[in-house]
Nucleic acid binder design. Structure first.
Lengths: 198, 198
DNA sequence: TAGCATGGAGAACAATTGGAAAACAGACGA
DNA sequence: TCGTCTGTTTTCCAATTGTTCTCCATGCTA
């Protein structure tokens, strides 16, 4: 959503002065800084910024207000590569990928490069970039990043069994499903979207 | 569509100064910069540029206006769906997807939703979004959007044969390659990247 | 020469934007 | 309990902005 001029001004101001505010500023402080004499006017603009998702009201309902800016601006970190059976190869310096919102979720995300063909029948190929939502739990049938025995990371389809064990299913008929005790498997995230360059 | 001299002037000006405008310029600002004294006159030219598809009005219909259509800024248009054997189903109103540069090229691009499973063995699944670079030619082995007999659009791997004919290869062992005379096949773009939401 | 396309001026118009002011409700400290 | 500080809501108003309209000038061409 596009901002009007004044909305952009105010957003820019908040952005630039984010560090200068010890606490998030009150409306009165902002009015003074921005040359407004009515909190009501400011309120309209702030409301627009909230609608646009660029700013968030403080949890404490009172006194102060604050600006958050999140992955929509910075992008999500590309953490490295995941290959079935090995730990995640972390990049020394994570690279940030600016992605459009519709590929993300409201929760923190990160990106991994897929190595290998264990999910090829789900359309995930060697070299693809996957966007993962950071979560420690997942529902049946979701494709997850799982850490097995604190050692191997892998991208597989999840199946929670009735007896409490967990089965990780490779979408590759050459690779059989593997079943583990619940405590052996730690969910590190859930597959959200996929990018591929040709 | 052809532009008149002044229309071209104005378009050039907008293009060159795109970065200098913090917000999209108002008509008054443009009039001043372009040496006009009547917004009404400018309006006629802008209207012509809009008709020509070179410029777009801002969403908020007022206050500030005029956006360049540059894919880095605006995003690329989602034109509709492509299903093997049918014309492209165009969306009434193309939706614009802001994508990071590394998924695009320097040339004009557009996005299509893939229907069907004809390319499933290339990792392209039903419902995937593909980014296409607008081109009327392609090299051997590239995956292209091809229009056959001015009627059917399809996404296939291209093979130019020695005798001048063209073979379109579905990446699906259930579908045999099809060979056409060169004049039957018109290339409309080349596959650049792929997006998928889960 | 008349006709037409292009380019521009200016006035009038409606919608939106940006702002002021007043009043209100909840939180909090004295 | 009372006053104060906060965000919120509402009403009103002025300026700005895109749009539409009419009128005019110029250059080209049939």
């Amino acid at each position: 959503m596009k901002l009007t001029r004044r909305q952009q001004d105010i957003y820019d101001y908040l952005h630039e002065n984010a560090e200068r505010f010890a606490h998030p500023p009150t409306y009165d402080e902002l009015c003074q800084q921005l040359g407004l004499s009515s909190r009501g006017s400011l309120h309209k603009h702030i409301q627009a910024l909230i609608e646009a998702g660029l700013v968030e009201p403080m949890e404490g309902r009172q006194g102060i207000r604050l600006v958050e800016w999140q992955q929509a601006d910075t992008g999500i970190p590309h953490m490295g590569a995941i290959a079935a059976g090995r730990p995640i190869e972390a990049l020394a310096q994570p690279e940030f990928l600016p992605l459009p919102e519709f590929l993300l979720s409201k929760h923190p995300c990160y990106a991994l490069t897929v190595k290998g063909e264990s999910m090829i029948e789900a359309g995930i190929m060697d070299g693809d970039l996957v966007v993962i939502e950071k979560r420690d739990n997942a529902r049946n049938g979701e494709i997850v990043v799982a850490l097995i025995n604190d050692a191997e990371a892998t991208l597989k389809r999840l199946q929670n069994n009735h007896d409490g064990s967990v089965t990780l299913i490779a979408e590759n008929s050459a690779m059989p499903p593997m079943t583990y005790a619940a405590e052996q498997v730690q969910i590190q995230g859930v597959l959200l979207s996929l990018l591929r360059r040709y």
